[in-house]
Amino acid sequence: MNAYLTAAMFTITGFAFIASTLLISRILRPSAPNPDKLETYECGPLPVGDAWRQFNLHYYLFALVFVVFDVEAAFLYPWAVAFKLEGPYAVAEMLIFVALLLAGWAYAWKRGALEWE
């Protein structure tokens, strides 16, 4: 538990550094806004509409396949540490687990989820 405490203290120290630099910079820097300066940058011309609109659905597909594999990885970590104590069944179980996932991965590939257009 102590190790987590020092890790948390490290994070807090880091955050304090970030916050202080942002704050000091805020005090020191000039501020002279005008409407033209605050316009969204679109290479010079006035921006056409805003950016909060529909985007390529394909990003979601990758995210879905990712979630499946990442959950798998979360299961495999405890296994990787413990399998030396658990005997041959642990290896066999993992092989079945990975084989099932590979089947899903092959299906996703075949259905074109991994292709980028």
């Binding site: 630099t21 910079s25 020191l28 820097r29 501020s31 806004p33 605050l38 316009e39 940058y41």
Partner: peptide, 8 residues
């Protein structure tokens, strides 16, 4: 550090 912060 010293540059103006532009807030679009």
């Amino acid at each position: 550090f010293l540059k103006e912060d532009i807030r679009p």
